[in-house]
Structure formats: C-alpha cells, structure tokens
C-alpha cells in the first residue's frame, strides 16, 4: 500500500467515487428505458379526451378536477384503503406467526413450510376462479358442505351480498399473498445470528421479549421494504377482484384498479382513467413516504 504514488491514489479515489454508479447502472438503465415512458405517456394522455388514434381533444386539468368531485372515484379510493389495510394486516399477521413457528425446532417442518407456500404458487387467475366457484351460491362446495352438515338451511350468497362479498374478497387476497410475506420474514430471521438469541436468553428474556428486542429490530430493514411494497401491490390489486366480483355487487368491492380498468377498457375514457392513475401514483407515493418516516431505521 505504501508504495502507491499520490497520482495513482488520486485516480483510485476518483474511480471509487464512480464505483456505486457502476453497481446501480444496469438496474437504473433498464428501468429508465422501460418504466419512465409508460408513466410519462399516461401523464400525457391524462390531459386529453382521446381514443388514442385519431381523436385528441385537449382538456387540460378537467379530468383531475373531475376525479376530485366524482363520488364513485372517491368511493373506490376509500374501498381501496380499507381493502389494503385489512389485506396487508392479514399478510403480516399470518406471515409473522407462521415464519416464527417455522423457525422453531418442530417436526415435519419441510412439510408444513411446503404446504403453507402453496397458495403463492398458483396464478391469480386460477385462485380467483377457484374461489369464485367454491363460494358460488348455487353450486359452490362451501354451501353444499355447510348444508350437508346442517349448519345452514338456505344457501348463502357469499359473493352476492354486500355483507359477505367484501370480507370474502379480502380473505382470498390474504390467502393468496401471505406466503410471500412469510418467506421474506423467514429468510430475514435466518440471517439473524443465533448468538444474539443465546445472549438474550442468558439475560433471561422470554419468547416475546426475544421477539420484541432481537427479531423485530433485526428484521426492520427487510420489513420496511416488504411492508411498503406489499401495500403498493395490494393497493393496485386487480386480477383477483376483477375475476371474483368485478367490483360488485353494486359497488361493494369496487377498488380503484377495477374502476380505472373499467373506465379505460370498458368505457374507453383513457384520459380520465389516466388522470385517476396519476392520483393513485401520488397517493401510493405519499404512503411510501409516511411508512419510511414511521419506520426510519437509524
């Protein structure tokens, strides 16, 4: 080391300044090429009344103003917030419980873990159809089973009554998504050094205290990431709801993603749908900021 001349050191220093950019370049360039254009395009068409081909009528900020006063858009936003809250809570609750148990010395661990991961392996399309069918009022197995067991007399319209449709959709989304959170937490827990638990138990910490003071802080970076991303995904959830209830009955399960899709591809109001999308973008961004403030690590 001592043999290096000042010039070489200087060059090395300049090089090392560039090092981080080298690491982040491949990902950044790909994203710039592929994601920025779609978003800018969406932003652009939100100022037009357009069919995307030969009708481009400038409407300025009209659609943004309209979104503010549109009762169905505010309703769908509110439904989205409730939906997201319950689903993310469900994901984390189940994810934490199962990851913790699976991290303990238990028998048939591989089997249990294998089973619990299953929902994640099926495409959304299949999960949606599967549950739509299980929950069908007339020919669904759930009603048939409950009636067979004498638990209910009349078939229940699981997805056709406001009171049950929303909880059912939330359940299906939790069912589909919790394994991802579970696996991320499990992987995170396994990167925690076991020495720390030993030290904690020598200090007399019980299970909860170990969890609270060892597991949770160590998992914080990974949890923050999973929490933010899971929230964003659930916020945008489309396929599961679209295929099970399509936002219905009435507008009981009408979340923003479904509403935007209907506006764009059923009613051909691309401009308005884009303006709504920009709103969603801003809202998601704010959620991200709030989460990071709340969970600031260090």
């Amino acid at each position: 080391m001592s043999t290096l001349s000042p010039a070489v050191l200087k060059r090395k220093k300049r090089l090392s300044k560039l090092t981080p950019y080298g690491f982040v370049a491949p990902a950044t360039i790909t994203m710039l090429l592929l994601v920025v254009y779609p978003i800018l395009y969406g932003f652009y068409i939100s100022f037009f009344d357009t069919n995307l081909v030969n009708k481009w009528k400038w409407v300025g900020l009209t659609y943004y103003g309209k979104a503010f006063t549109d009762a169905s858009f505010t309703h769908s936003l509110w439904m989205t917030v409730i939906f997201t809250t319950f689903v993310v809570l469900g994901h984390f609750l189940l994810g934490f419980v199962f990851a913790n148990i699976l991290n303990k010395p238990i028998r048939f661990k591989t089997f249990f873990r294998g089973v619990l991961i299953i929902p994640w392996l099926f495409p959304d399309v299949v999960v949606a159809y599967l549950f739509k069918w299980i929950l069908n009022t007339q020919s669904g197995i759930l009603n048939a089973l409950l009636m067979h067991l004498g638990l209910i007399q009349e078939p229940i319209g699981w997805l056709t009554q406001s009171a049950t449709a929303f909880p059912c959709v939330i359940f299906v989304s939790i069912w589909k998504g919790f394994p991802l959170v579970m696996i991320q937490i499990l992987a995170g827990i396994q990167t925690i050094n076991t020495d720390m638990y030993e030290a904690a138990s020598i200090d007399g910490a019980n299970g909860w205290q170990q969890f609270r003071y060892v597991t949770l802080p160590a998992l914080k970076p990974i949890l923050t990431t999973v929490l933010i991303l899971d929230t964003v995904w659930v916020f945008k959830q489309f396929t599961l709801i679209w295929l099970t209830t399509a936002g219905g009955p009435g507008s009981t399960t009408m979340v923003s993603a479904v509403e935007i899709y209907k506006n764009a591809f059923n009613y051909f109001k691309y401009g308005y749908a884009s303006a709504q999308s920009v709103f969603i973008l801003v809202i998601c961004y704010l959620i991200g900021v709030v989460f990071r403030r709340l969970l600031k690590d260090d």
Partner: peptide, 11 residues
Amino acid sequence: LVTQMFPAVMK
C-alpha cells in the same frame, strides 16, 4: 418504488 405505484392497467 414510485415506478411500482402506477396502476398496471394503464401501462
């Protein structure tokens, strides 16, 4: 993160 937040249908 933000790139994840734009509703997919509009992409």
